Amino acid sequence: MLPAYAHIQGEWRLLQRSIGISAMHMQLLKNNKVVIFDRTDFGPSNISLPGRHCRLDPNDRVLKKDCTAHSILYDIRTNGFRRLTVQTDTWCSSGATRPDGTLVQTGGYNDGDHVIRILVPCNGGNCDWVEYPRSLSQRRWYASNQILPDGRVIIVGGRAQFNYEFYPGHSPSSSKSFRLNFLRETKDGHENNLYPFLHLLPDGNLFIFANTRSILFNYKRNHIVREFPAIPGADPRNYPSSGSSVLLPDRRKCSGRT
């Protein structure tokens, strides 16, 4: 525990005995609500879709007709939740929130691997997932997303994807990927370069970490500015080895070297 917070006493509280789904993915939204969602190809959940609606998906590998929800919107203030409708498989997808608070969720598995899903936060009961099939240029399964200063989202990697792309593209109908050989170089026999760690740095470049290696990347020019030394021990940190990464503030002055 950090010394500054050592005096604070915390506690665990059970807020809901069940929300009906597993929380594979969660995202806090700008209106103090949390969207929670799970994969769709692991059988029915424990909560039905509203209004006796059903999801009809001939491409689903488990349920062609599914009348259960795989996403909910949890309200922190009221401790209540309502059901949302996910049409395609979000298994090991990725996402980012745009400056206006909109959640952009990309990729997944099977019929969801080229899908972009949008959720615009609302305080009423009308907002739900909107899905855009075949909107990604490449299959994005175990990719990573990062919001950029211009409001776009960069989508990096994924299983057997050694490239990146942007959302939105230069036009609504354009989707194009750019090669990033660093991802190919960091793939090993266990694919320990999935869900690469991404951090946007103050100089505008992107820090990318995969397996045991990391680079400083100029995504505007598709150029590696610098490659850093590999971490000691040769132990991978990315999925499936499942480490984690966080960017901490550093008040030290830079030496001016790049």
Rank of each mutant, 00 (worst) to 15 (best):
P196V: 00
E165V: 08
H7R: 13
S137L: 05
I116G: 00
R77A: 12
S22Q: 10
R61E: 10
P229D: 11
R252V: 15
T97L: 14
D188W: 08
S245Y: 08
G158F: 11
D100R: 11
D235F: 04
N205F: 09
E131R: 00
Q87T: 04
S94F: 10
L201R: 11
G189Y: 11
F162D: 03
D66S: 00
S48M: 09
Y142W: 11
L119W: 12
L198N: 00
I118G: 03
I72D: 01
N110Q: 07
F207W: 06
A69Y: 05
W12R: 10
F197C: 02
D150A: 03
Q16G: 03
R82G: 00
V246L: 05
G10E: 07
R17Y: 07
Y195W: 00
L103D: 04
T102R: 01
P229Q: 08
F178D: 06
M26G: 08
I21P: 01
D150M: 07
K187P: 04
T88E: 04
V86S: 07
T68I: 04
T78G: 02
D100E: 04
Y164W: 09
F162W: 14
P240R: 01
I72P: 00
G108W: 00
N181D: 07
R152C: 08
C92H: 09
K187H: 07
I76S: 01
Q146G: 08
I231L: 13
G256F: 02
S174K: 14
A234S: 15
N31Q: 13
F197L: 04
F228K: 09
T90R: 00
G204S: 06
A234G: 08
C254R: 12
K220G: 06
A210G: 06
E165S: 15
T40M: 14
P3H: 13
Q16I: 09
I208V: 03
T102M: 05
T212G: 08
Y164G: 01
V153L: 07
R152W: 05
R226I: 06
F228H: 07
A230G: 12
Q105N: 08
C254L: 15
Q9F: 07
H25K: 10
A160S: 09
E191S: 12
E11P: 01
P99I: 12
K176R: 14
P168N: 13
Q161G: 08
G20F: 02
G124T: 10
G10I: 09
